[in-house]
Structure formats: C-alpha cells, structure tokens
Design a protein around this nucleic acid. Structure first.
Length: 1168
RNA sequence: GGGCGUGUAGCUCAGUUGGUUAGAGCGCGUCGCUGAUAACGACGAGGUCCCAGAUUCGAGUUCUGGCACGCCCA
C-alpha cells in the first residue's frame, strides 16, 4: 500500500449529525450543487414534477415535512437515474384564510369592517402577510433538504399568474361553460355574509327546533291530503314541491276518528299513529313513483296568487303531455328516508342544498325561457319580504316558526307538532345569531359536462395507493356537481368578466393588455395614482381589487353605455389547479417550458387534497386540454385547441397520496391541571408523583403537543426525520410523528452507516490504503473504473465473503431501482437497510481479522479493502436520495483522496447500476444457511452457558438434505471462527441427535391432490419419518395409500423437518440442527484462558491510552498453574493480537496493573 | 346519515398471486463482546392477526355482516 501519508484518517466515533448537515447545506449553497445537478442533465429526458403550492398562511408544521420530503426523494432519485427534473417552487397566496389572518391582525372581522377599513389597504396587507409566511416556509424547505427552485417560484397573486387564470376562464366563458346560478350557502343574515365550511363547523350547538307534519290537500282529490314533514316551518311559504322516494311504499290511511284520508310512507304509519295518539286504517297502498306528478294545494297561497299557478312547455313530453305546472307537485327524490318524518318531505329549494338540486332538476325539464323561478320569500337580511300573511312581512324568519304554526293550526292544516333536538350552526362571531341556508347568485363552471372525461382521465392516473382511483377520488368525480367558482371576497383572482350596464350582456377578458386595448378605457388612473403615492406597491396588485374594479370601457352592446367588472373574486382552488400552465404565465409567454413540462410525471400531496388540488388540477386540465378542449355549449364560440397532442392522463401521470400525520405526547393524569410533555421530559421523569400516559392524536397548535420541525432538526437532524418518514411505513398510512422513532432512526440507520464508514477509515489509515492506486478511476468511482488498481482483483477471484457482500450489493441495487421506479420508497429503504445490516453485522464482523492482520501487502487484505470501499461508495449513492446530507458527507470523505478528480457531491453522480455478473443467488442462499447455522450454534452455546471465548472441539450440523453440504464444507472457516470451534461436521445422517418428520409442501400438493390434502397430511404425520426419508433417498419417491388411491410424492412435494432429540446441546432451525460437543479438555481450557487474557490486555491498552499501533510489554502474576501453561503455550498469539513485545510472568512495578480471574496483569507502553 | 380507509407482539409498523412455524425495529429479559466502543452483537419471552359467519383441502390474506377508530362529505 502507499508509503506516503495515509489518504484517510480515522473518522470521529460520535458524529454530530445536525452540525454536519449545516456544513453540507453551506456547501450546497456555495457550490450551487442543485443547479449543477440540473445542468448535468440539461439534455436528458424530462421527469416532470409539479409542486402543489403550499398555502403561505400560517407556520409550517411537521405534517408538511412529510409532504416536502416525499416531494424531494423521487426527483433526487430520478435525477441520479439520468432524468432532467426541474423543480419549480410555488406559493398559494389568495383566499379567505389570508383575509382572516389579516383581519385578526387588524382586529376586524366582518365584510363591513373590511370595507370601512378600506379594500385597498386591506389587500396590501394580505400581500405582505403571505410574503412573511413564505420566508418561514423557505427556511423549512431548505433545512429539510428539499431541493426546489425557490428563486423561480410561481406565486398565485403575480400578474402573469392571474392573467393565465384569466385566459383559462375566458376560454371557458367563450365556450359557454361559465354561467351564473344560485348557490345555497350558510348565511349570516345579520352580518350579510356567507360563511365558509370551516367557520360553520366552529359554531354548531344543540338546540330544540319544531318538527311539524302538515296536510297538503290534493288538487284533484281534495278529501285526500299528503302528510308532509318539515323541521323549518318558516320555509313553508316558499314551498315548491313535496318529495317522495320513488321506490318506497306509501299508504293512503283513514283516520279512525275524523275519517280524513292521508298519504304517508307505509313504514311510518304505526309510528305516526302512536305519536298522534290515533289509529289509522290502511285504505290502499302504492309506490312513491305512483304519486309523482300529483298536484297539491300549498300551505300558503301567496305565490299561487301572485304567480297565477304558472306552467310551461316540457323539453321532453311525458306520456303525451307537453306542458306541466311549475310548482306544487309531488316529485321523486332519493334522499327521502323513513328514518324520521312521514316519508313525504316539504321542499323549499331556496333553503337547502339538496332541495335546490331538486329545483334544478325540475327546471331542466322545461324548455329554455319557460322555466320555474326559485321561490324565496325571504330577503338577505333574513326577514320575510313577500308571499306571507301581512303581519309576517319584515319578521326575522327564526321568530316566525310559532306564528306560522299557529296559522296552520287555525286553518286546520297542522296535523302534528313536536320538538326535536339537533345540532344547528350559529355564527362564530355572534353566537346568538343562527345561520340559515340561503341562495346567493354565484358563478359556476359546468364541470358536470366533463364528468365522463374526468373519470376516463382519472382511470389512467397511477395512484398510490390504488384505491384512491375508484375509491375516494372516483366517487367524488362520480357525484360531480358544477364548480361554484365565485367568492364575494376581496383577496383573490378577480373574475375577469365585464357586464354591460344597460343590457346585462357580458364578455370575458383574457389578459390585462386585452383589457387596456378596449375602446374608451377608463379607471386605470386609480392604480397609477396609488402607485405614484406609494412606489413600494408591487405591480402585481394592479390586476387585483380594488384597482381592477375601477377599470371600465365602452359597451359593444349598447351605445354610450359602460362595461363594468362583476364584483367577485374566484375560489383560490381554481388558482392552484391552473398551476400547470399558470406557473409559466402560459399562453401569454413561455410556450416552450409549458409544452415540455406538461403533464407531470409525479406529484404528491396529503389525502385532504382529494377535493382540493387533485380535483382542481384534473378538472381544469380536462376542460382545457385533450379531448375536453372540444366541448362547448351550443351556440357559443368554438374554442381553439391550444394543445392538440396531449393524451390522458392529464395533468399528472402518478400521484402519491399521503396519509395524515398524527402526534404523540405524554399527559399527566388527574389532579386538575393537565400537563403535556414531550419526549425528553417524559423520559427524565422529572415530575415526582406524576404518572404520564402516552397519547396519540391530532396535532394541535393550542395543545402544543408536538415538537417543531426546527427543534427536530437541531436535535436529530433532517436525515433522521427523513429516514423515519421514508423507511418506517408506506407513506399513505397515517403516520405518527413520534419523536422516539425519529431518534431511533439514528442508531438504526445513520449511525450504523457512519460506524461502518468509521471502521473503514480506522484501518485505511493504519494500513495507508490508497484508492488512488486505481489510476483510471472515473469521477464517480464506479466499480469498473477502480479495476485499474494493481492489487485490485475481479470479484470472482476474491474470497467467498467478498463475493457475497458484492452480490448482496448488486441485488439490493436492483431492488431499490425496481421499488423506486414503482414509487415505493418504503420497500426501497428496506432493501438498503438490510444491505447495511449485512455489511455491518456480517461482512465487517467476519472480516475484522483480515483488516487487522499484520501483513499489509497480502492480497486478501487488499481484496477486503477494495470490497469494503466499493460497497461503501455504492451504498452511499443508493442512500443519497433518502438521506442526502449524510450521503454527501460520506461521499466527500470517501473520495477526498482523489481531490478534484471526483465529483464534488454524491448528488451529481449516477445512480448505481446493478451488475448481474456479480450477483450470485446461490451464494446468497448458502450464506443465509451459514448465518442460520452460526445463529443456532450461538443459541446452543447460550443454552449450556458456554461462552463464545471458550473454544470447543466440534459441532455437528445435521441438515435435511445434502444440497448445501459441499459448499458449507469448503467454507466452514467462518463457522469455526464465529462459533469458536475446532471442527465442523456436516451430515444428513443424524438419527442419533434428531428425529425426522415429513410435512407436505402445500403449495405444490394443493393443486395436485386437492381435497385429499388433509388425508395426505395425516398419513405423513403418522408414518415413520426415518422410513419415509430413506425411501425417498433410495427411490426418489414415496408412495402413500389414501383410501383406494395410491399417491406418489417426490422430494418437491414434501419437506423434511428435523427436531433435536433431548439431551444434546442442540438448537434447531427450519432446515438444520446444530449439536455441540460440550466436552472441555484441558487443552481447550488453556486456549480459552489465552483468549480471555487477550481481552483483558486489550482493555488495559485502552485504559492507558495506547494508540492503535503502539507496542506494549505485559507482565502477569498468574493465579494458577493452568494460567502459566496457557501463557507459555499461547504467548506468540497473545503478543501478536495485542501488539506486545514481551509477555512475562512476574510483576512490573512501572506498569499499571489490572485484576482478572487469571491473575494480575501489568501493561506498559514501550517507547518506540 | 353517506363515502373512503385502518384494526397484526407492550409500542411503531411490514406481510407479494390464499399454502399450514405470521415477521422487523424499538422496548423488556438473559447473555456476550470490548481497538467500529458515549458503540456493538446474540439469544429469549411476548400474537385469539378486532368479532362473527361464508367460500376453500387450506384464510392474517377472498366474500358477507357487525364492532372500534380515523378522514372526507352531508
């Protein structure tokens, strides 16, 4: 080996991973490693990744670490595999949460307060707020090692982004796919605003409300009435229909006392009779569908009078009938149940989402222009406006239940009235104000036109896990409803539709320049003035409220009239879904980038994005590109296809759907104040008298039941967290953010890898191992390029164990590639883990002597170094995508001797290629058996309390068959060393020690004998195992009589099992039994003493701070003659092992001494 | 109320197309090693695979019905 100063120096034993990671971060930054990694793939085939924009509102928490780690590992892997994977960061910046956050800051809540504060300063604050949070996110992103281009990030409020969104909306508008309709929202009447689902969810509480059963007499048969149920009497004046389930059975019943005739669901007849304390006689029954179409007299006739009971022309005639009355008919609805009520449900479509759908369906039955209007007797302030008795006009609806009930009673329509308890939402800002469901004008995208195309598209997406496709996501698409796009808010992409103030006709605008080019444009000065006053304002705000609202132009539809923008902004999910093209500002710019980066090969988010980003992307892409681009409403302008050659799936080919992240913490029990502690506090048990119980559950900011990512990085490092996330479970399961498990990934993987590396450096330093001997080494130190070293031998010429670990390495490499290509990080990590286990716990352990041997130039020693070096290099490359920091640290240290000849970072390397010529599965099998035999031997020793240090004469290994014996005999040095025995005998003839049983190989036997399996099993169990075995060995088959049949079984059909007989120091495994000879002769005893002495001397070397290579002299004052004999006999071995120049009997006054059971030992360093 | 998912060792999780001894890590216990050492290794104990039924020669795995938990929606 090299005579120069050693190229490697021993690595520290206890690395501080977080500190090493900081160094690597700085190194990446200084040397632009991420950009370099992209540059190396400039001409490579693309692997397209889309970053789902995190909402830049609120601090990142541990759940986001998982998302960002998964988003990192696959692009890193693909880059190493030779793909060009650009990673453009992005930020979702619009939306209600941002407004709420700013509102908190300003101490304001309602829309009125925002208007009073001023929309202009308000949206400026929104813009500043998201900017602030983005910086927090960037820090987390970098520290976690998520390589993504933060400098080129797309931002949803940027003008170019907004304009892309406008382009897409104009496209949809021109195709007739954007329309105005009603949306039923939870409405805070007193505040005049709709509440988001999240806000509504906060305000539920239990209240008692009326539940009433009302008579609706039939028009054509006035002595019969429908018994109609509702829990909101105040909606009865707005009644439009009565709904029945078409497949339920209904009864016409006769009241026992009054004789009146009522229709209700058969299943509810008894229940209602009981409630009403009466008896019903069933007159006739029919199905719900028989009732559909019957007309009834509504409970309040306000609309009947004012509208004059209108009717219209049916789009599809029904049974010869071409017209139908708009209102007050029985309709069919699947949501009707017999769980409660009467089976006939009052429908006031203005005040419920499902009710509204019924109206929508009815409306579509009529031809355009002759359709029913939505009946709504209530104003936005929650008070009656029309169609009610005069005294109710102006009354708040929730105060109207009683007078309405009273009125119904007086008119004889009320059949039964009850109270019932249920949860009802109240306004979270004014908890005395109940919310009501209320229709608002809203813009919709006709996504239902694309349902089939979306399903077809979805069917081709590679979902991980697969059940998302037909499960949660598929079901969601199945029940698609039109996308309610508009929001009556401030901070969002403005809906780019301008309306003629005279005719109401509209047009959409595709970008800002198009707007400025409109005739008679005015209002742009509002932005110009604001900018002049405050030059700091970012230009992107000019396409936002309130500036954009000021821009008006001449109407093309009416002379002298103006076009004004509608007031709404859009759902920020639309922003996110437009990201595949909007991130490039396409189609206004960057056509090349968009064409090259669409669709994505890979995206990943948590499961909560099913209805969020996964849907918004799929819907938008399906409507705009591919087949969907050709879909438009009749009469609208034909769309121009912008992309013709893109096929499904769009806009992403593969998606990993991540599970939710839970937290784990400890809580003290009882005694009033609950105390929540995290891992280290729970461990210190610093709380006398308090018991802590482990809790698992949702993360909660207010409970502070998790440790912040920053702290995790500082304590354990990003690699520890990443490895935990990748290697502990499939990513779609919910993951517990357990600090202990993160901590555990250090010894399990990081430290084990480090220790193996450290072992290498210790000996490489001592022996001066110099990889530069491989003069033709390439910049990635691929195995082939190392072959030019003089002492480098082909793997095939090296020892068994070298060939074994290289075989394992190449098998693991193939496995990792196979799994990662299938987006399966979990099993890829398992393959890496077990490779490292083999390297650390078998290869290094069994090769120690080879590294420690004094013959520096032995070929075997060189083989060992090259094998370990190559394996470490390749292992570090395999680990690079997963634990990028440690992998790069080790890469840099392993390649340091080469200086600039090798690549500066492992992340610039190619991923290892499996070398099949180095794979030897037979060797793997044999080694597995050998390791099992060693393990059995240790178990047998342990059972007899025979320490491994005490040599034994022999072990006998009894095997079920002889297929492996020859190999084992040739390579039993490993066993002899591992078990510290003098000889190993292998045999299949172990009658003395074992008994044989023959069991069926069910997998083969099942198909062969079918129903006779149990009989065969029984026959084999009852037969004498030794007999069967000898027959099998002599004839190759055994014959069994089962009933009348004779069944022949060959050695594939059955399996020989061994069981150790009692009385031997033996241990049994699946295919082998290991028996120890426990006789300890004086000779063996002496050798045991010698080995024990080596151990004591080695300890003492350490105690007196010897360097690895220091020489010593040793004196011993033995406790017995046996020890003297042992010392005499093994003096040479002891001296060699411990680097002792002399080993003498007697004391050494200069030396420090140590006691042992064999005598007092003095060890003294010898000056060189 | 509906949809989806989960339920396997004390804990955290694997478990391929059904094949008869259900695995890993941690923790626990016992022991070993002591020049990879603030590490490491071996061995062991620990399981009604949520429950019940069905299909099958054979079910942790397939089917049906429950139960519990979680998520999404109403």
């Amino acid at each position: 080996m090299s005579d120069n100063a050693a190229p490697f120096s021993a690595a520290p034993a206890s690395p501080k991973f977080p500190a090493l990671e900081e160094q690597i971060l700085a190194f990446w930054k200084e040397n632009d490693i991420y950009q370099q990694s992209l540059k190396r793939r400039a001409d490579a085939p693309p692997f397209v990744f889309f970053e789902g924009p995190p909402t830049a509102n609120g601090m990142p928490h541990p759940g986001h670490c998982l998302t960002r780690a998964i988003k990192d590992v696959f692009p890193r892997y693909k880059t190493m595999r030779g793909f060009r994977c650009e990673r453009k960061a992005g930020w979702d910046t619009h939306g209600l949460p941002v407004e709420v956050e700013v509102g908190k800051e300003l101490g304001i809540h309602s829309k009125e307060e925002i208007e009073a504060y001023g929309v202009e300063p308000f949206i400026q604050k929104c813009q500043q707020s998201v900017w602030r949070y983005m910086q927090q996110w960037q820090r987390l992103t970098e520290r976690l090692g998520f390589w993504v281009d933060l400098e080129q990030a797309y931002v949803t409020y940027h003008q170019s982004y907004v304009e892309s969104v406008w382009w897409s909306l104009k496209n949809l508008f021109d195709r007739g796919l954007l329309y105005q309709g009603h949306k039923i929202v939870w409405w805070w009447a007193q505040g005049g605003t709709a509440l988001s689902a999240g806000e509504v969810g906060q305000g539920y509480r239990e209240v008692a409300d009326p539940s009433v059963y009302v008579r609706f007499p039939l028009v054509d048969n006035p002595d019969r009435s429908l018994l109609v149920w509702t829990t909101t009497p105040w909606t009865l004046p707005s009644n439009m229909y009565a709904a029945v389930h078409p497949e339920l059975e209904y009864s016409l019943v006769k009241h026992s006392e009054t004789g009146e005739l009522l229709y209700l669901a058969s299943a509810l007849v008894d229940k209602i009779a009981e409630k009403a304390k009466c008896e019903f006689e069933i007159v006739e029954t029919c199905s719900g569908s028989d009732l559909v179409g019957l007309r009834y007299q509504p409970p309040f006739d306000g609309y009947q009078t004012s509208l004059n009971d209108p009717s219209g022309t049916l789009a599809q005639p029904v049974g010869g009938q071409t017209t139908e009355h708009f209102y007050w008919r029985i309709v069919a609805a699947d949501f009707v149940t017999t769980e409660s009520g009467s089976g006939i449900v009052h429908q006031a479509s203005a005040f419920g989402e499902v009710d509204y759908e019924v109206y929508d369906q009815q409306r579509r039955r009529f031809v355009e222009g002759e359709q029913p209007e939505l009946l709504c007797a209530v104003g936005p302030d929650g008070k009656f406006t029309e169609a009610v008795p005069a005294e109710l006009i102006g009354v708040w609806v929730k105060d109207a239940d009683k007078p309405i009930s009273r009125d119904l009673k007086q008119r004889g329509l009320m059949f039964l009235q009850e109270q019932y308890l249920h949860d009802y939402p109240f306004c979270w800002r004014a908890d005395q104000d109940p919310l009501i469901q209320y229709p608002r004008r809203s813009w919709f995208i006709r996504t239902t036109r694309f349902r089939e195309l979306m399903l077809k598209n979805n069917s081709q997406i590679g979902w991980q896990p697969e059940h998302i496709r037909d499960g949660r996501f598929g079901n969601f698409l199945d029940s698609n409803v039109d996308w309610a796009l508009s929001r009556e808010r401030y901070w969002g992409t403005p809906l780019p539709i301008w309306v003629c103030e005279e005719t109401g006709r509209m047009e959409a605008v595709g970008d800002y320049d198009e707007l400025l080019a409109k005739p008679g444009i005015t209002g742009t000065e509002v932005w110009a003035e604001a900018k002049a006053e405050n030059p700091e304002l970012v230009d992107d705000l000019r396409v936002h409220k309130p500036y954009i609202d000021a821009v008006t132009y001449d109407s093309p539809f009416a002379d002298g009239k103006r076009m004004r923008r509608v007031s709404e902004v859009i759902d920020c999910w639309y922003d996110s879904g437009a990201m595949p093209f909007a991130q490039w500002g396409w189609p206004h710019q960057n056509d090349d980038q968009f064409q090259a980066q669409f669709p994505a090969d890979f995206i990943s988010e948590a499961i909560d994005q099913t209805r969020g980003w996964f849907y918004s992307q799929l819907a938008i892409a399906t409507m705009l590109f591919g087949e969907g681009a050709g879909v438009s409403e009749p009469g609208s302008e034909a769309p121009s296809l912008e992309i013709k050659d893109v096929d499904y799936p769009l806009p992403f080919r593969n998606c990993i759907v991540l599970g939710l992240m839970l937290s784990q913490w400890w809580e003290s029990e009882g005694e009033g104040s609950q105390k929540i502690v995290l891992l280290d506090e729970a461990e210190t048990k610093d709380y006398p008298g308090k018991k802590f119980t482990k809790q698992t559950g949702k993360m909660s900011k207010s409970l502070r039941n998790y440790r912040s990512p920053e702290e995790i990085f500082d304590r354990y490092g990003a690699d520890a967290l990443r490895w935990y996330l990748f290697a502990n479970q499939a990513p779609w399961n919910s993951i517990i953010y357990a600090e202990q498990s993160i901590k555990d990934s250090i010894p399990e993987f990081l430290l084990r890898l480090w220790n193996t590396f450290s072992f290498f450096t210790i000996y490489a330093e001592i022996d001066g191992f110099d990889p530069r001997a491989a003069v033709d080494a390439d910049d990635q130190l691929t195995p082939a390029s190392l072959a030019s070293a003089p002492m480098y031998r082909p793997a095939s010429e090296r020892s068994e164990i070298d060939r074994w670990i290289l075989s394992e390495l190449n098998q693991a490499t193939a496995k990792v590639i196979e799994r990662m290509d299938a987006l399966d990080n979990y099993n890829a990590c398992q393959a890496i883990s077990s490779l490292l286990d083999g390297l650390s716990n078998w290869y290094v352990r069994r090769s120690r002597d080879r590294f420690w041997s004094s013959d520096k130039n032995s070929q075997d020693k060189h083989d060992a170094y090259w094998t370990l070096y190559e394996t470490l290099i390749e292992l570090v490359k395999l680990a690079a995508p997963f634990t990028p920091f440690l992998a790069d640290t080790l890469w840099q240290r392993l390649t340091e001797p080469f200086g600039k000849r090798t690549l500066a970072s492992v992340h610039l390397c190619d991923f290892p290629q499996p070398d099949t010529s180095r794979v030897d599965t037979g060797l793997s099998d044999s080694m597995r058996l050998l390791r099992e035999i060693a393990s059995l031997g240790r178990a047998a020793r342990a059972a007899k309390k025979l320490k491994v240090r005490l040599p034994l004469a022999e072990v006998t290994v009894i095997l079920a068959d002889d297929s492996q014996i020859a190999w084992l005999q040739n390579h039993d040095a490993l066993i002899r060393e591992e078990l510290n025995v003098k000889a190993v005998h292998y045999t299949t003839q172990g009658d003395q020690y074992v008994q044989y049983t023959v069991v069926p190989n069910f997998k083969r036997l099942g198909p062969k004998v079918g129903k006779q399996v149990p009989a065969v099993k029984k026959a084999l169990a009852e037969a004498d195992g030794n007999d069967l075995l000898s027959k099998l060995q002599s004839d190759g088959v055994v014959k069994l009589s089962i009933g009348a049949d004779t069944i022949e079984l060959d050695n594939q059909d059955i399996e020989i099992r061994l069981q150790a007989k009692a009385g031997w120091a033996a241990a049994q495994g699946v295919g082998a039994v290991v028996v120890l000879n426990t006789e300890v002769t004086p000779e063996l005893q002496r050798e045991g003493i010698a080995k024990d002495l080596i151990r004591v001397i080695q300890n003492q070397r350490k105690a007196i701070d010897c360097q690895y290579v220091d020489r010593i002299r040793v004196n011993i004052e033995p406790t017995s003659d046996e020890v003297i004999e042992a010392v005499d006999q093994y003096r040479e071995m002891i001296c060699q092992e411990t680097l002792a120049d002399s080993l003498d009997v007697g004391s050494d006054s200069e030396a420090e001494s140590a006691d042992s059971e064999h005598g007092q030992l003095s060890v003294k360093k010898v000056q060189a």
